[in-house]
Amino acid sequence: MTAPPDAAGAGCRDPVTGEPSGIVFDDVHKAFGRHHILRGLDLRVPRGKLTVLIGRSGTGKSVTIKHVMGLLRPDTGRIWVGDDELSRMDDRRLQKVRLRFGMVFQHAALFDSMDVFENVAFPLREHTRMAEGAIRDKVRGLLAQVGLHDAEDKYPSELSGGMRKRVGLARALVRDPEFLLYDEPTTGLDPILAAAMDKLIHDTQQAHPQLTSLVISHDMAAVLKIADKISMLYEGRIAHEGTADFFRNHDDPLVKQFLTGSLDGPMKV
């Protein structure tokens, strides 16, 4: 473990929210063959806040989130999660860092062979010695929290897209993580289900004030409602970051084009 430097590490305060940073990317580069995805990414995710990473498809948002989990390693640059620097960590220590995370996948990534209850209970069975009764209480409580108290015997194939994502959220929360990552949680949902999911993300953050959340999203209306901080990824770097008000009132053509979804602007299709 390397102590993070004051200027860049986890000890530094986030300039937007004033909170200490929980996750820090310091000049991270990542290329796949000739595709240079991250080009010097500097990102700070403040503790106890909900940060949304926005950007066009293919700009490296999912690559960023995979770096946070240690599923990918940077070519150059450093990444801190709390006081742990991931970039040079071996797999065994990475596993320990991952235990501090929960992740909601884009398509939920529930295990087909298990019912809803078993899916949510899975991290507890793998990593704790909790009694069966305690596991049952915890899982049922979380399923009730996400509005799925009557679905515990169903299999993923019997659930709608929105239900699957809610089960994914319950599974991510079951071990009371310090960090919660959402990979495009509303993609593929109709506007009503998407709004319900956004409310659930917001409510979850309110119910767990110590939780540090990072959300990847394209849904700008929702982003402006739920985010404590928004970071905009453009050409492998953070182009802008600020609060929702900052983005609403910003007159940069890049921000305006992304907010309005206009075809005219610096971002070409």
Binding site: M69, L71, Q95, K96, R98, L99, F101, M103, F105, Q106, H107, A109, L110, F111, D112, F122, P123, E126, H127
Partner: peptide
């Protein structure tokens, strides 16, 4: 294979399960 393409293997890794 279907676990790989539906990100279930990524989910295992994300949950610190080898």
């Amino acid at each position: 294979g279907s676990m790989r393409v539906s990100e279930q293997i990524d989910a295992l890794e994300a949950m610190a399960v080898d």
